[in-house]
Nucleic acid binder design. Structure first.
Lengths: 215, 215
DNA sequence: GTACTATACTGCATCATGCAGTAGAGTCAA
DNA sequence: TTGACTCTACTGCATGATGCAGTATAGTAC
């Protein structure tokens, strides 16, 4: 029996619902369009369509380009049915993995400089991804979308990415302002500013809008 | 030779730098405190300290509670040195995994209701995590922090979590207002509202502050 | 013609997860 | 005091997923 379908299987199936792709194209397309929602390795993206074929959700066609073969995968009717059924299921909670935040939690084992460097790196990464998303989406206004009928979906998705990357950049600014007041990373405990933040949290007031820099 | 150290190894090493823990305690503590920065399975969290011992970064001590054994892991001097060295390295970019956003990208394969249900679920998950973080942090004001000298670190970390979960809830509101104007999930392409969003993106203006609901 | 990049994958070791299974310790109530 | 239930304290195994190296042809620019 073929191995079971995972969320990644449905991610690839979703791409196949747009148009047929070769294995190589799938890896490129998934890297480009799914990177910020469901980032998966090239290796896995080569394996998934085979699994879909084994389940009857896609069909494979060998083509030849000169001496070399390539496989074009096409979604089947069963594949569309399975995808529609999956769309009605409950999604797993969102998950964030951030090494830089791990450095914050364990900051007492390094210098203040180590900590700000880690946060700067996270902000730089976020800023770069922000720029990439802006560039790609600005192109949609000039008819650059590869599937124009899908523009409403990719643009709405892009708004989330932009807000997220913007949040990261703004939060790092806030965090660095805080850390700038720390003489060391270690043993500070409940500082006045920490207490002020906690009071805001307790009152569920926004933190980034008015950073505790005083009047 | 022992298998190589991963970021997860340093995550566990960071916990051991705080105090010694048994394997079971490590799984509980990592689930609680690292869940939103470096979420890892219980199974892995049992395996990592063994790897640290093999590398000489931690020592293991068998204790007995009645008829049963348990292992207490303690960081070594080499472990502290390795952790400090790791703190100075460059962190990997942050990564978000969100099944609900995958449903948005492939929304044309389901109903408008399917899509809003997926986004509602993401918002509900975020709201629940938000409440958990507020509850835990409010307790710190009453001296509930298990390691009071680390309060400044966990509170600053918490501000990021809260901003992230709040963003998700607010973005879902924004997205649902948009989707409410869609007669279907499919083939809408470049709608007037999508074009308005794209123009804002091009001008790098904030999207959530003034949603395009018109005057 | 040659250097370089893009296309088009596969194999393998290892990392990581999920689930089932084992079993003793502590707690509470009938 | 016995039984039910939860908490503590793990291990084994199948499978999912990643990273890296390797192979090799096609296209393009100089």
């Amino acid at each position: 029996m073929p191995s079971r379908l995972t969320t990644s299987s449905y991610a690839v199936l979703g791409l196949l619902a747009v148009r047929p792709w070769t294995g190589y194209e799938l890896t490129q397309q998934a890297t480009r369009s799914l990177r910020f929602a469901w980032p998966k390795s090239e290796r896995l993206l080569y394996a998934e369509p085979k699994k879909l074929v084994a389940h009857g959700l896609a069909s494979a066609l060998q083509e030849s380009v000169g001496q070399r073969n390539r496989t074009v995968y096409t979604i089947t009717d069963e594949g569309r049915t399975a995808l529609t059924a999956w769309m009605a299921t409950v999604p797993q909670p969102p998950v964030l993995e951030a090494e830089a935040l791990l450095r914050l939690l364990f900051a007492e084992n390094g210098s203040v400089n180590n900590l700000t460097a880690a946060l700067d790196q996270m902000a730089a990464d976020a800023a770069e991804m922000y720029e990439q998303v802006v560039t790609i989406n600005a192109g949609y206004l000039d008819g650059q979308h590869p599937f124009p009928q899908r523009t409403h979906l990719s643009v709405l998705f892009a708004t989330f990415q932009l807000e997220l990357f913007d949040l990261i950049v703004r939060w790092v600014d806030f965090a660095k302002a805080e850390i700038d007041t720390w003489p060391t990373t270690e043993g500070l405990g409940m500082t006045d500013r920490t207490e002020a933040i906690l009071n805001k949290i307790k009152q569920q007031r926004s933190l980034l809008e008015s950073p505790p820099t005083g009047p």
